[in-house]
Amino acid sequence: MTLTFTLDPAVTPDLRDGLLDLWTDVSNAGGAVGFVAPVDRETIRPELVKHFAGMAGGRTRLLVAHDEGGRVAATAFLAFNTHRLMTHWVWLYTVMVHPRHQGRGYGRDLLAAAADAARTFEGTEAIRLTCRGGHGLERFYGSCGYKEVGRIPGAIRVAPGDDRDDIVMLLPLT
């Protein structure tokens, strides 16, 4: 099975619902995408609306992957910097692959597609992301070419007494 990637798809009710389902399923499977399980679609909806507002304002781009059945299988958002001294790199965030598709190399495919997309953005020289410690995500991103460039110990509190590092990763594109 292969995924079909689309940058800046039309936001339709089907896409919105697919993104909500993806984000909910990833979160409930233990994914580190801004929530702690258990969550439902209505908990996630306001955050997705913020992402859509960024897209409507031209500050954010959506990369989405559909599986052969047409279902949303993976996604990542790329956000432009608004600070005039930092416009040469973009943020990558809310990077998700549906649990039913994990372990097939689709995460690597998603990151490669995000890098390809970022290379088309005029003046973009790097991608920066942060990830939550305790999941081994820094090893995965590292295997995809990202370098750890910073770490803030205990910056993310997932539960009382469960603080995780906020890890900053960078992928040079040039």
Rank of each mutant, 00 (worst) to 15 (best):
T4W: 00
T4C: 00
T4R: 14
T4F: 00
F5W: 15
F5G: 09
T6R: 14
T6Q: 15
T6A: 12
T6N: 08
L7N: 07
L7V: 12
L7G: 06
L7F: 08
D8Q: 14
P9L: 03
P9G: 12
P9W: 05
A10C: 03
A10W: 00
V11R: 13
V11L: 14
V11W: 11
V11H: 08
T12N: 10
T12D: 13
T12H: 11
T12Q: 10
P13Y: 06
D14T: 13
D14Y: 07
D14P: 01
D14M: 10
D14H: 13
L15V: 15
L15Q: 08
L15S: 06
L15W: 06
L15D: 06
R16P: 00
R16Q: 12
R16G: 00
R16D: 10
R16W: 04
R16V: 07
D17L: 14
D17G: 10
D17Y: 00
D17S: 13
G18A: 11
G18C: 05
G18D: 07
G18Q: 08
L19A: 05
L19K: 05
L20D: 05
L20E: 08
L20R: 08
L20Y: 08
L20G: 05
L20H: 09
D21Q: 13
D21S: 13
L22D: 04
L22H: 11
L22F: 12
W23N: 03
W23A: 07
W23D: 02
W23E: 02
W23V: 03
W23T: 05
W23P: 00
W23Y: 13
T24E: 10
T24D: 00
T24Y: 01
D25P: 00
D25H: 13
V26L: 02
V26G: 04
V26Q: 06
V26P: 06
S27K: 04
S27W: 01
S27T: 15
N28Y: 03
N28S: 10
N28F: 05
N28I: 12
N28V: 13
A29P: 09
A29Y: 03
A29M: 04
A29T: 02
G30S: 11
G30Y: 02
G30N: 07
G30W: 02
G31H: 01
G31R: 02
G31S: 09
G31I: 07
G31A: 11
G31N: 07
A32F: 01
A32K: 04
A32N: 04
V33Q: 05
V33R: 02
V33G: 04
G34V: 13
G34K: 08
G34Q: 08
F35N: 04
F35T: 11
F35P: 07
V36D: 00
V36Y: 00
V36M: 01
V36W: 00
A37T: 12
A37M: 11
A37F: 09
A37P: 09
A37D: 06
A37R: 09
P38G: 10
P38Y: 07
P38V: 14
P38D: 10
P38K: 05
V39W: 01
V39P: 01
D40I: 14
D40G: 15
D40L: 04
D40T: 15
D40K: 11
R41Y: 03
R41V: 14
E42C: 01
E42L: 11
E42P: 00
E42A: 15
E42N: 11
T43P: 00
T43G: 05
T43K: 15
T43A: 15
T43W: 03
I44A: 05
I44N: 02
